[in-house]
């Protein structure tokens, strides 16, 4: 009976991790939309919602520690709890990065968006997070590799977009139209591009931990 309850607890933990992950994914998508559309209300909602995300994260982390201490899981159960424990950190960090985007959206200098759009970047990053969470929920090893491949695509795209921003800045400097506000906007945009790229990294981490969980395969961890 005790072991059946333990197995039920593992199932509950999986559901709760996925649920928190999807909440954070929604936070990220809404922050990205707020940034592009200048939607202060949505951006504020995202910032305000982070406290709840953090509390749920700490609660789930505590549940993992309880499982380690009280159930002493081994083999597949051990890999599941250990992977979940690490994945929770990635999910919480994605929540923080969503807040970064939302705070950028609330800044008045957000209008500096040259010929590039962060929309494409956030779309890919959000897709990666969603696929990584699906892989974790289903225990799908093949999907983990697909997420890792997609991170290469996102990294390349972020690099090209950052390059375009810098080239745009250089062009404006030639036209003597660079001022402090513009520089601050460029700096913020570059940070945002980096944040989106990090969301992709966290999605890849989730995939890597999931692959370890499913097949004890550490390939994607390195």
């Amino acid at each position: 009976m005790a072991r059946e309850e333990f197995q039920a607890e593992l199932g509950d933990l999986r559901d709760a991790v996925v649920d928190l992950g999807r909440t954070v994914l929604d936070q990220f998508r809404r922050a990205a939309r707020a940034l592009v559309e200048g939607d202060d209300e949505t951006a504020t909602d995202v910032v305000d919602g982070d406290g709840t995300v953090n509390r749920r994260y700490l609660d789930l982390e505590s549940r993992c520690i309880d499982l380690f201490a009280l159930q002493q899981p081994v083999a597949g159960d051990l890999r599941f709890v250990a992977a979940s424990f690490k994945i929770l950190t990635d999910i919480e960090r994605i929540g923080d990065l969503a807040v970064n985007l939302a705070e950028h959206a609330l800044e008045k200098r957000r209008n500096y968006l040259p010929e590039v759009s962060v929309d494409d970047l956030t779309g890919i990053a959000a897709e990666m997070v969603g696929r990584a969470l699906d892989a974790y929920e289903r225990g799908d090893a093949a999907a983990c590799h697909a997420v890792a491949d997609q991170d290469d695509e996102l990294d390349g795209l972020c690099q090209r977009v950052a390059q375009l921003v810098v080239e745009d800045l250089v062009g404006r400097e030639a036209d003597h139209t660079v001022d402090d506000d513009l520089l601050a906007g460029v700096r913020r945009l570059l940070v945002t591009i980096r944040d989106v790229e990090r969301v992709g990294d966290h999605a890849e981490n989730i995939a890597a931990r999931t692959l370890y969980m499913v097949e004890a395969d550490e390939t994607l961890l390195y």
Binding site: Q7, V74, A75, A216
Partner: peptide, 17 residues
């Protein structure tokens, strides 16, 4: 053995299944 046993019967035994 305790992290990734080869045999399902071992996995089932050590995880209590």
């Amino acid at each position: 053995i305790f992290e990734n046993p080869e045999h399902q019967r071992v996995e089932d035994y050590i995880t209590g299944k």
